[in-house]
């Protein structure tokens, strides 16, 4: 077991072979120079890392429920504030929340908004695997347009999820948070830089991190890095930051690969390659291009 990497999250967790989020968690927490306390929403990370009697967490950790990780850390952070004032707690501590996209875009959306609005000093990290994966791949508002899930299956009448992914980054930024960034597990240097920035920024900060799911996106267990890379290389998942409302794109290319390169690597998009659904791929390409142009236009 790698001692350096397992200072916060040890081995022995039961995430699927080839899962991406352990790397996300370890990379982000590795950037903190001070001790951390974690709150975590119900989800894959939580259930695979705290299966009694074993907890893979070597740092203080609380799982409360599915929709309240941000509210829970709000309580922890305020407790810290007063106990430090009273001299009962001496050390400086950082507060980090981890949640999946379901726990962030949907059921945890309200408690996230409350915590951001109240200005608690914490970092909220959403590992975005595009659906409710722990419960067996049901659709969330983060599921991409056209993706098949167990609740948006493709069929005679449907080509998968009909709605467009909720733009959570803009919603987070709209709270006036000092720092929000979209990152990708395949781009570790970029993720590290953003994690350090988020951890060092006073007040609520937000990281949305691309986290491929081998089991439910249906790709071989060895592929999460390659597929995550393609997501950014095709502009499907741009890397950018919003600092005090100012947008900055961290990775761009003159000639992005066609989104098809990304889609064809995953079983959840396989149905789009039928004659009937081919036009949907064109639609997705247009949406990806339009979104990137929109982002680029927001950069001063």
């Amino acid at each position: 077991m790698n001692k350096e990497l397992t200072k916060n999250l040890a081995s022995g967790h039961s995430a699927c072979a080839g899962c991406a989020f352990p790397t996300i968690v370890r990379t982000i927490l590795g950037e903190s120079d001070v001790p951390v306390v974690i709150s975590n929403a119900t989800g894959c990370l939580e259930v695979t890392s705290t299966l009694y009697p074993y907890t893979a967490w070597k740092v203080p950790y609380i799982h409360n429920a599915f929709e309240n990780a941000a509210a829970t850390i709000s309580g922890v952070e305020r407790a810290y504030k007063i106990l430090k004032k009273k001299g009962k707690i001496k050390k400086e501590i950082k507060f980090v929340t981890f949640a999946g996209d379901g726990g962030t875009y949907d059921i945890g959306f309200q408690s996230l908004s409350g915590a951001l609005e109240r200005g608690h000093n914490f970092l909220y990290v959403c590992y975005d695997n595009g659906g409710y994966m722990n419960t067996g791949n049901q659709r969330s508002s983060a599921t991409p347009f056209g993706a098949a899930t167990e609740t948006t299956p493709s069929g005679k009448m449907s080509f998968g999820k009909m709605e467009v992914r909720k733009n959570l980054m803009d919603i987070a930024a709209a709270h006036g948070v000092p720092y929000a960034a979209q990152a990708n597990v395949a781009y570790l240097p970029d993720l590290k830089k953003k994690a350090r920035k988020a951890l060092e920024t006073e007040g609520p900060t937000f990281l949305l991190v691309f986290s491929p799911c081998t089991n439910n996106w249906k790709f071989p267990t060895s592929q999460f890095v390659s597929i995550a890379k393609l997501a950014t290389e095709t502009n499907f998942w741009p890397l950018y930051e919003i600092e005090k409302g100012k947008y900055k794109i961290n990775w761009a290319t003159e000639k992005p690969k066609p989104v098809e390169e990304f889609l064809k690597t995953q079983g959840r998009f396989k149905h789009l390659f039928s004659e009937k659904n081919k036009p949907v791929i064109g639609q997705i390409q247009k949406m990806v291009d339009a979104e990137f142009r929109r982002l680029a236009s927001l950069v001063e």
Binding site: V37, S39, I62, N64, A65, E67, N68, A71, T72, I73, S74, G75, V76, R78, A79, Y80, I82, L83, K88, I89, Q110, S111, G114
Partner: peptide, 16 residues
């Protein structure tokens, strides 16, 4: 209120 009791669980678990 859901966040009220949730924050209370957090602060109490924190030691407050």
């Amino acid at each position: 209120e859901h966040s009220a009791i949730s924050a209370c669980v957090g602060s109490s678990a924190a030691g407050a």
